[in-house]
Design a protein around this nucleic acid. Sequence first.
DNA 1: TTGTGTTTTATTGCCTCC
DNA 2: GGAGGCAATAAAACACAA
Length: 277
Amino acid sequence: MKQPSSSGSQDALNFIIPPKEEMNSKRKQIYSREFQALLDDLEEEDRLEEVDQATEKKRRLSFNQVKALEKNFELENKLDPERKVRLAEELGLQTRQVAIWFQNRRARWKTKQLEKEYVVLKSKYDALELDYDKLEQEKQDLTAELMELKAKYKEEKSESSSQSVKEDSSKFSQQIKDHGFCENDDDSNGIVKEERNGNAQLLISSSSSLQMNGYCSSSDSSNHHWFLPLDTSTILGNMYQPQLVKVEEQCVFTPEEPYNFLSVDQAPTLQWYFTGL
DNA sequence: TTGTGTTTTATTGCCTCC
DNA sequence: GGAGGCAATAAAACACAA
């Protein structure tokens, strides 16, 4: 900073604005001690402010400096030492200032990038949310439709099942009487034997709606044979209530080989069992 | 003019790399 | 261990409404 020269013009200035020392001595003669202390405090504040102004203050870079820095940043957003020194010389800045400017510029760039990424992700998220809502609605509609169909099906089955059971039972009994076994034109191995806890299990599948799952007890001293009929509709409705049906006719199966002639090599596919589930 | 929010410049502390 | 980068933050400069 240029210092004012002590020349004739300085004398003239001193005449208009007397030096501080002179003013102080004059004031001390005029003001009270308390008021003087107050003035001294204010003066001290002014002095500190002047010192502050004298020190290096934060300055904004000029338009041209920023323009040049921006241009360099576009080329390469990181500085190598050589470029830093060269830029500082060209722009009349300290190397540290150039480095700091690049540092801050990178931070701003990163923030902008994050904002852009956020916008893209947000739009993707919104689109997905829309799709999800649509699918959810579709799922609800389909579920409702399925429930409706199931209820309808259950209703129809329960109406026909009691009648069907009676008819099929008598038909079955007649077949046993006539042929000794249940005729089955379905070649899907409708009759299967199993040993379970000493009981012979008969799994009989007919082409009718009735399926019968029966346990024929060989230890039964009477000639009564117990079958456990299982109606498909009761499975579907999760209302399976096993009920033994007493077959009054004489058992055609001897205790020794009650079902051998019914045995098959191939296990049933059980497809009929799961149909409708 | 002033209070307030935003932007820019600079500092600090920590971390990584050579 | 020094140089350089980054995140967080301070502080000055600036913009703007009331």
